[in-house]
Design a protein around this nucleic acid. Structure first.
Lengths: 211, 211
DNA sequence: GTCTATAGACGGATAGAC
DNA sequence: GTCTATCCGTCTATAGAC
């Protein structure tokens, strides 16, 4: 009762509160960026007093770091679809669909990450140059092997990743622009399905994997 | 001498100073966004006293508006390449090359615009829903006619624009990520040329306009 | 028309009561 | 462990000297 050295007791409350704070922070950072987001705004969205954010995380930057860390994990996962035993067409199609699903399900996460990149990636630059670079190198080798075997068209595999990232994330990051041009107020599930089919078919044909 | 009602006299100085301020502001807004940019920073970059910025523009938001306005004009111009008398392949290739050139030549403009969209486009939302939507509609009609004539593959023409914008602007907006993955410190002219050839060939093949 | 000096508001962080 | 009240630095904007 008096002892609470392990994470069992109030650790539950801490864990729950941290989760609430990070979710609120992600939404606020997506909407206004790092400088445009105030601790008061995160506190209000979390329905917690401002001082508690400092109690749990210490500083605004620490909250931002925590939000980014949570995002990065999820961001790299879809690349699993691309492995040497897979069929080229299926692998790339799965990868694109997974990225499009992320755009639909976690638009705020995408925006926070985009914002970080846009402003020079001060916090994740190192990770990009190490982990992401390593991951892309490995996947590029897989794609290159498929090209050498004549199983898909010759494209620059590294740049193909840049194009897939850009084409899929634009539906999360720049949704206002997409909605405005389409004449909608926001992107419906139907509109998103249409976007997905477009990106899949354009890229697959671009890779010589259909027609 | 005493009369200065026209723009001839000190109007020269005003025009020159406004130009300097807007150029400096574009660079700062690209680096740090609206909230992250201080008037002091713009003043230092302009080599003008802080109060002069207020003298010329009135407020920080007015400077931001002026920067955005300058960008929007240049942004829509490349679409001229797409008109009904043109050859489909030439038109789309020209359009992509023009957008890639903009990414190379005006990366800061691209970043300011991307940042505005990312945060919900409070200032340009209306323009997107009117001018941009109208422009895209017109160009989509041209592309659709080409498809109906069997001169290119059936793709969703509106979404094709989204993909081209995303694929080309990613080299300006997310240059840190591209550089990190490629293992460079920044994007050389050679790397940019390679990027351009990639985007051109991928999209053209995706549109059934090569091989 | 230009610039210094300052007002006034806001935001991040913390002290200290509970 | 939680929260109120407050400090202190920073930022936008402007008043007023030159």
């Amino acid at each position: 009762m008096t002892k609470q050295t392990d994470d069992a007791g109030q650790g539950q409350i801490r864990q729950s509160n941290e989760r609430v704070i990070l979710a609120a922070a992600e939404a606020m950072f997506a909407r206004a960026g790092f400088s445009g987001t105030t601790m008061a705004a995160i506190a209000q969205a979390s329905e917690l007093p401002k001082a508690n954010l400092h109690y749990y995380f210490g500083s605004k930057e620490a909250i931002y770091r925590a939000v980014l860390a949570r995002i990065l994990n999820d961001w790299l996962a879809p690349a699993d679809a691309i492995h040497s035993e897979a069929d080229p067409r299926t692998a790339i199609e799965q990868y694109i669909r997974a990225k499009m699903a992320l755009s639909k399900q976690r638009p705020d996460a995408s925006k926070v990450f985009a914002n970080e990149l846009l402003h020079g990636a001060p916090l994740v630059k190192e990770l990009l140059a190490t982990e992401l670079r390593k991951l892309v190198k490995a996947k590029v080798a897989v794609l290159q092997a498929w090209m050498d075997q004549g199983r898909m068209a010759q494209v620059d595999a590294t740049h193909l990743f840049f194009t897939i990232w850009a084409a899929t994330q634009t539906y999360a990051d720049f949704d206002v622009q997409v909605s405005a041009v389409l004449g909608h107020n926001n992107l419906s599930a139907k509109a998103h399905a249409r976007s997905t089919e477009h990106v899949v078919s354009l890229i697959l044909r671009g890779c010589g994997l259909s027609q």
